[in-house]
Amino acid sequence: MNEYYLGVDIGSISTKGVIIDNNNQVITSLYIWTEGNPIVAVKKLIRELKAKMPKDGKLLGIGTTGSARKLIGLMLGANVVKNEITAHAVGTLSKHKDVHTILEIGGQDSKIIIIDNGVVVDYSMNTLCAAGTGSFLTSQAKRLGIPIEDFGELALKSKNPVKIAARCTVFAESDLIHKAQIGYLKEDIIAGLCKSIVLNYLNNVGKGKKIREPIVFQGGVSKNKGVLKYFKEVLDAPIIVDDDSHLMGAIGIAIMAKKNKNHQIFELDATDVLFETKGSECSKCSNNCEVLKIYKDHELVDTWGNRCPKGSE
């Protein structure tokens, strides 16, 4: 009987799931859109992964990461729930043992992780604002009427990328509209946009960090060839993009579920369970906490956001 481990990375834009074996090899994986509803997305993900999992194996661990990790961890009964920074570092180290710098750009956030001798020694993550992340690229692709999948290819065609403000998406967007209206070619605008993402990233998240080789680039945006090209150009260094670069957080958390000692056999029956959340403002004291109650088959299983026990009644 083979032993498998499931890692689920629920981001703001996409939800990723992988099943790995005892040698950290990816058996099967899936990448779908979260579409603002992590519970529905994960149910779909689990249904498809379950169908693809070899019948001869048993699932011994589940790990969740990403911004919805706590909710989905509860839903799946995961034995490891960890932040995405640690998960990305663990995942990347399993494939690139000597990595020094991890650049990661996801849907709503971007981060840089500096590793020395296999240990995370520094990291930084964007705060407050989603400038220079994937969601900005997606919304601009929509505005320009280009499928996001073709975005990178088109950027590579440009010989003269336009200059676009790299500080803030609001300024970047007005630059973009202005350049389009005065007649710049679409590919030049797209290339300019890819470059502005890179500059924004290095100015904000990467500020003051020593970027040393080997450099691994991951997250959904790493699949964008335009952004990759400008990272290489600006950093003047080779950059590794793994085939599984978009899955690295999920792989990392699956490995952590494997390393965790609390193994048990999981059945993956979450798809049949009715899982609901209800948000409300608790009025039992003057704190007025915003409370979220989680129900599994109409039964209250957890309460979040309350500062005192009154909120969980």
Binding site: S67, K70, K82, N83, E84, I85, T86, V119, V120, V121, D122, Y123, M125, T127, G305
Partner: peptide, 19 residues
């Protein structure tokens, strides 16, 4: 949002503990 703070604090703890 509190989630973002928790993520960063947890990662910070993981990092200093790992070091």
């Amino acid at each position: 949002s509190e989630v973002g703070i928790k993520t960063r604090v947890e990662a910070f703890y993981d990092m200093i503990e790992g070091r």
